[in-house]
Design a protein around this nucleic acid. Structure first.
Length: 582
DNA sequence: GCCGTTTTCGGCCCGACTGTTTTCAGTCG
């Protein structure tokens, strides 16, 4: 059993105990343990073998015993019993914003409601308001919450979908009958949020059934939705739908382009083909007017790769990320496709938390992980003092952290740790650190973490006031939608970016879900205004560092060129950029 | 559940907000 699987079980135990109304500190102990195990770099199995499990802070005797049972038998009786006693629908109900374990327990105990649909019905029939502690407004909020939940239920983060898809792809690719195989669809275009996974494979003739069998019996498959010779659909245990399509190799580049999309890009490609007197579909180019049926139309242009398909239309290759019919075809025609940011370009990142505040890895561990990624620097930005919920630093702790950073920097060769902070922008737009404290940082990320129900004008004013502070380098998670399935505060990003340009501030982009489409447009506008962006994962552990690869910065690289992103510059240039804080 | 200890039991993160109450509980970050 992997650490990640163990971590998920511990987290779930914590949640189930909450739903049972167990001691909140006990619940927290399980959640803590889950987080800790999830961030470990050593396998739990190894720790058990070397008898070191209980040396980890947060793992005591009780948890150690459970982990040993889990490790040796692959099962945990305590967990299985717990699952039996809590209806699975209650876990689903927890995902409704504004509804927590206490109130779920109340509706379950009093009204015997154990599913989201049951809850919805009860709210619609105003049965909830009769329960003490519930009122009209709560009913409305629950209904709104359910609507929001259902709207996003079929959406998945790029990072999660990519991991799930890679596991399938690896198996398919290794089949002897497979000639070529790729991820297509929105996942290939690296959309921040995707609906389902599309996989395309070309195979040797006659092996369709074999491959479909391999696909539908993959260990990650939870349910087969459809199984045919050219297309099969499954539901993965990650909750994501996955389609596999099989085609002849000669059609591969056309099919790959077709199934990658997006739709608007495909339409534009087809109308361009028309200008050359051709018709383009997922099987190839054919003479206009001769597109009776697949295989019958004469293939008039032979293409081995997607590059050939674009080339046939006198276009430079368009990277999947840009295929949105947002001007990329014109750019490809003129040979102006931008030099996009890639993972290899990243030299470091600025928004990282450690155990000094709410991170789950130590400074040293974070630095080690960054070096393993081949980076040249890491910026540490732990929370400021008002963020007590996130273990915000006191000035004493801050001094201690700076001392530790200085000592490490003195030892490290070819690597630099930057002293940063994620300072709270307080309700009135002032900052949570004094100018004196702010002057001790290499850079300052300023973020809003409180009073989310602001009007757009209030939020914008608050942020712009913070940007005026001469010590602020960067605006943290700017678009104000902090969490999955939860509304944040509206911000007038046009005004904010204009202010960022006026005060030469950097705008951070990162992988917070459901605000990423906004970030994409934001990046484009920022570029036009000459505002630099910084690709930051808002990492809370060493695994989070890698999220930068999945985050908007890379995922939706869009028109972002290397020169527009500070993290991709050489170390020397970054220090220059940071200089304006001093 | 864990942790730390003046060692076997008491404390465990806190402030804002909301909607329900009539002084507070639940939820959130």
């Amino acid at each position: 059993m992997t650490n990640k699987q163990i971590a998920e079980i511990l987290e779930e135990i914590g949640t189930l105990l909450e739903l049972q109304g167990d001691n909140p500190f006990k619940c927290r102990a399980y959640h803590n343990a889950g987080r800790i195990i999830g961030a470990l770099t050593t396998d739990v199995h190894e720790l058990i073998k070397s008898n070191e499990l209980q040396t980890i802070k947060g793992i005591g005797q009780g948890l150690a015993e459970k982990l040993i049972e889990l490790d040796s038998t692959g099962k945990l009786k305590f967990y299985d019993d717990l699952k039996q006693s809590v209806p699975p629908g209650l876990l689903e109900m927890l995902r409704i914003p504004g509804l927590g374990p206490k109130r779920i327990k109340i509706v379950y105990d009093r009204l015997k409601i154990k599913t989201v649909s049951g809850l919805k019905k009860a709210a619609e029939e105003h049965k909830l308001a009769s329960v003490s502690g519930f009122g009209k407004k709560t009913e409305e909020n629950i209904l709104n919450g359910i609507e929001l939940l259902q709207k996003h239920t079929d959406q998945h983060l790029y990072s999660e979908a990519k991991l799930a898809a890679d596991r399938i792809l690896e198996v398919i690719r290794n089949q002897r009958c497979v000639i070529r195989c790729d991820i297509a669809g929105s996942l290939r275009r690296r959309k921040e949020v995707i609906g389902d996974i599309d996989i395309l494979a070309s195979i040797k003739k006659g092996s369709e059934r074999t491959l479909m069998k391999v696909f539908t019996t993959h260990p990650d498959v939870e349910q087969i939705i459809a199984q045919g010779e050219t297309k099969s659909s499954v539901l993965l245990n990650s909750g994501i739908n996955c389609d596999l399509r099989v085609i002849d190799d000669i059609e591969y580049p056309f099919a790959l382009a077709y199934f990658t999309g997006n739709k608007e890009h495909n339409v534009a490609m087809r109308s361009l083909a028309k200008k050359y007197g051709w018709s383009l579909n997922e099987y190839g180019f054919s003479e206009l007017g001769a597109e009776e049926k697949r295989g019958k139309a004469k293939r008039i242009v032979s293409c081995k790769t997607e590059e050939d398909v674009y080339g046939a239309l006198k276009l430079a290759y368009v990277p999947p990320e840009l295929r949105e019919n947002m001007g990329e075809l014109e750019a490809a025609h003129e040979g102006h496709i931008p030099n996009l940011v890639s993972e290899e370009d990243l030299r470091g990142t600025f928004h990282c938390h450690t155990t000094y505040s709410d991170g789950s890895n130590t400074l040293l561990e974070m630095v080690g992980a960054a070096r393993d990624l081949g980076w040249e620097y890491l910026g540490i930005a732990d929370h400021s003092k008002v963020a007590a919920y996130a273990g915000g630093l006191t000035e004493t702790r801050l001094k201690q952290q700076h001392k530790e950073i200085d000592a490490l920097n003195a030892k490290l060769r070819g690597f630099t740790i930057f002293k940063g902070t994620e300072v709270d922008i307080l309700a009135d737009g002032s900052l949570d650190w004094s100018d004196k404290v702010l002057s001790t940082f290499d850079y300052v990320v300023a973020s809003v973490h409180s009073k989310f129900k602001m009007t757009e004008a209030e939020a914008t004013k608050r942020i712009i006031k913070a940007l005026k502070n001469k010590y602020v380098t960067m605006l943290g998670h700017p678009t104000g939608r902090l969490l999955l399935q939860r509304e944040g505060y509206p911000v007038n990003m046009v005004e904010v970016i204009n202010a960022a340009a006026d005060y030469s501030k950097i705008i951070e982009i990162n992988s917070h879900p459901f605000r990423l489409d906004l970030d994409w447009r934001l990046c484009k506008f920022a570029k036009e205004k000459g505002v630099k962006v910084s690709i930051n994962p808002d990492a809370h552990n060493i695994n989070g560092l890698r999220d930068v690869h999945y985050g908007v910065g890379i995922a939706r690289k869009g028109w972002l060129e290397k020169r527009d992103v500070i993290n991709t510059r050489t170390f020397k240039e970054i220090t220059l950029l940071l200089d304006h804080t001093s």
